[in-house]
Design a protein around this nucleic acid. Structure first.
Lengths: 248, 248
DNA sequence: CGTAAGATTGACAAGCGTCAAATACAGTGG
DNA sequence: CCACTGTATTTGACGCTTGTCAATCTTACG
């Protein structure tokens, strides 16, 4: 009940629809910080639901480089980009101690057959992720380091707030500066410089990996990316099938 | 018949499934080069199928910057990233004279209700686009200008080859160097320098906007991004509903 | 207490952006 | 057919953001 109220992607879903998604997943497995859940290139895509903790999705390059593609928070479905491929396209790594539930692929098939409305919302969720990546691409392609950092901190802050994790304007990252660099397309050294700069200007305060966004309003004004407004239950969605739609 | 044999995303679809997608779209409208099909921020998402010509999807920044998100080729569905939102997230602009067919949204709803297999392939198609964006993000975040250009040229060459448009190793871009820069996260000046460099090294040959990839093998060796292998009809997909599944 | 990983800092180099001017090119109207 | 005009391409000079290298310091943890 608790962690599913904070799935941003499914914010608009009915209790029954949420139960349908939740029912897909198997029993949870635990991973320690740094442990690999899925390795890029491994055969056969797998699906997961993140029950608790933080997970990174990343793409490794043959020259040793690494790009962090997404920070997964509880409630996220992980592994879906690999579904149309023969091998896993990204690596999933536990950023904190976390619990992960596998989702058997054939249940996705029956979901499409039996619960068209939930399937459509899964489709919409994929499109939302696509838009988030479009924003990320724009951020890395057209913004300088300072603006990238601000956009990143704001985005994560909003996601955490929406998920009910941690108070607004205050976050503790389970990421090294190396990893923040891999996320933003910067070197760890420059991440450090950028953070120091923001702190010296008084835009943020920090101690260790804890960061406080001092002047949220000023930061939002510096954020060039357009605002997005979710409308997650459009009127063209198919009706709920009323068979197994009741919670519990 | 013709242009649908070149939809990479639906390469594995049965004739019946293809017909189901095709049947969604309305009559085509024509757009001249530079004309806007959809404007970022406009109310109410719309869906399109590109019948003929090239279209760019782009995201404008409030400081005047612009990021090209995707080059759409014939057969592509356009506008889907905006579906979960109240307003269009990207702009669609004709790069060449092109024909575009609108897809009424409610038909997507009935598609999910009546053709679960086709709906699932639509879902897979969204995941494929997501993976392509993940590759783009990695490219812009971790590769220098030279490698970005090579990866771009290779990617486009492969897409065109797969679509049966133009011979392998030879392409004519309907993009200005400004637009290539917006695609790769570079300035037009640096795009020019990079292209000149590649030409001087003999990796490519060019006259105007026509580019020949002289040494495809060498270029592929320089391409750091991992290769992807589509498996677009996994065994967990739901069965075709056998009502209107026959071609014609 | 010792060790390893991460954070911080400085000096330096380089890739890319910025500015500006020159050239080529396409479309238009006379 | 040609001058005219705006747009895209090309090129050079210069500067700044960011990357690279390397040393030091801090922190976490066994």
């Amino acid at each position: 009940m608790h962690q599913f109220s904070r799935i941003s992607a499914f914010a608009d879903m009915s209790a029954g629809d949420m139960a349908a998604i939740r029912a897909l997943a198997g029993p949870p497995a635990a991973y320690r910080r740094g442990q690999s859940i899925q390795t890029q290139g491994e055969a056969g895509p797998r699906l997961f639901m993140l029950e608790d903790g933080w997970v990174s999705a990343s793409l490794g390059l043959s020259d040793g480089g690494c790009q962090l593609l997404k920070i997964h928070l509880p409630g996220d479905i992980m592994g879906s980009p690999s579904l149309p491929y023969t091998h896993a396209v990204d690596s999933l790594t536990a950023l904190t101690l976390c619990r992960v539930r596998p989702i058997p692929l054939n249940r996705i098939g029956t979901l499409f057959a039996e619960k068209p409305r939930v399937a459509a919302m899964l489709f919409l969720s994929a499109q939302e992720e696509r838009t988030i990546l479009m924003d990320r691409l724009t951020m890395v392609g057209r913004l300088d380091a300072r603006r990238r950092m601000i956009a990143f901190l704001l985005h994560l802050n909003d996601r955490l707030a929406l998920a009910g994790m941690g108070e607004n304007g205050s976050l503790t990252l389970p990421l090294s500066q190396q990893q923040i660099g891999d996320l933003l397309g910067l070197t760890p050294v420059h991440v450090n410089r950028t953070l120091r700069g923001l702190a010296e200007e008084g835009v943020i305060r920090r101690q260790g990996r804890h960061i406080e966004l001092v002047d949220l309003a000023a930061m939002r004004k510096l954020n060039i990316l357009p605002q997005r407004h979710l409308q997650f239950s459009p009127d063209w969605l198919p009706e709920s099938s009323n068979l197994t739609d009741l919670p519990h």
